[in-house]
């Protein structure tokens, strides 16, 4: 056997150069999970087979089966690293910049159902920040329809979660609306229907003029006119600031 470089066998050297994804086998779930945890906590252990950058996909599901379906979808992927919890977890996929949203959507399409995914991208050494971002994005997404979310789609809510004094002011502003269920329902429906009055009234099974009246009351209580996109964003973010429960993600 030919030996090169401090008497390492040539085959070993060639393997290190040519196959960068030389991770523990997919059957070794525990080792791979440890590796995912190490990476997500921001420690790059210099493991030979790691990619330069990853998409961090935080996910949660309304049921344990839903979460299991996500894990099943990546079980045979030798490149995917998984840190799983009961109803949620993280999937790390090697990924080039700007490809992460597509990658997450692909995964989501294969799973479907009541699953929420938040995706962020980072070079390997910045994965802790990407994890924190994905976690906050998922918290916000969990209050919306199932699907794939990234920072830009929940940006306003995200900055408010990160600025507690702003969140406090907004939560105080929306408090009188939250205290009146019919107003809260009207506002939520109007937001969920992207500002479409007719659709919001249908969703609530109320007359359109009833909805208009309730939205006017919301305006009187908050000073924000729901028909204005900027004000609707403020109202929507205020609802997030008022209540944004934690999501079941592993530590």
């Amino acid at each position: 056997m030919t030996t090169v470089l401090d008497s390492l066998p040539l085959n070993d050297v060639l393997r290190d150069i040519l196959s960068p994804f030389d991770l523990p086998p997919v059957e070794d779930v525990a080792t791979r999970r440890r590796l995912a945890r190490t990476l997500l906590s921001g420690r790059d252990n210099g493991f030979e087979g790691l990619a330069l950058a990853y998409a961090v996909i935080a996910f949660c599901a309304s049921t344990e089966d839903g979460a299991a379906a996500v894990l099943d979808a990546v079980r045979d992927n030798a490149e995917a690293l998984v840190l799983d919890g009961v109803r949620g977890g993280y999937v790390l996929l090697p990924c080039a910049q700007d490809q992460h949203a597509g990658l997450a959507r692909e995964l989501y399409d294969r799973v479907g159902g009541d699953v929420w995914m938040a995706v962020a991208w980072a070079p390997r050494r910045d994965l802790a920040a990407a994890r924190a971002t994905a976690q906050d994005v998922l918290r916000i997404a969990a209050g919306r329809a199932p699907g794939v979310y990234e920072l830009r789609t929940v940006l306003a809510d995200f900055v408010v979660l990160r600025q507690p004094h702003v969140a406090e002011r907004l939560a105080r502003m929306i408090e009188p609306v939250v205290a009146q269920q019919p107003l809260l329902d009207a506002l939520r429906a109007f937001i969920a229907e992207d500002g479409n009055r007719a659709a919001a009234a249908r969703r609530l099974d109320i007359h359109r003029s009833t909805l208009d009246h309730r939205l006017r009351l919301v305006e009187r209580l908050t000073g924000c006119r729901p028909a204005s996109p900027r004000a609707l964003l403020t109202l929507s973010v205020a609802l997030t600031a008022h209540s944004c429960p934690e999501v079941p993600l592993p530590h």
């Binding site: 940006l155 900055v159 990160r162 702003v166 002011r169 907004l170 964003l233 403020t234 973010v237």
Partner: peptide, 24 residues
């Protein structure tokens, strides 16, 4: 008042969001 600019000022103070908005 700051209430009228909450979102904008919060963006400026949050580096991740500022970078993302720049990319958007």
């Amino acid at each position: 008042r700051i209430d009228d600019m909450l979102f904008e000022s919060a963006v400026i103070r949050t580096p991740e969001a500022r970078d993302e908005l720049g990319r958007v």
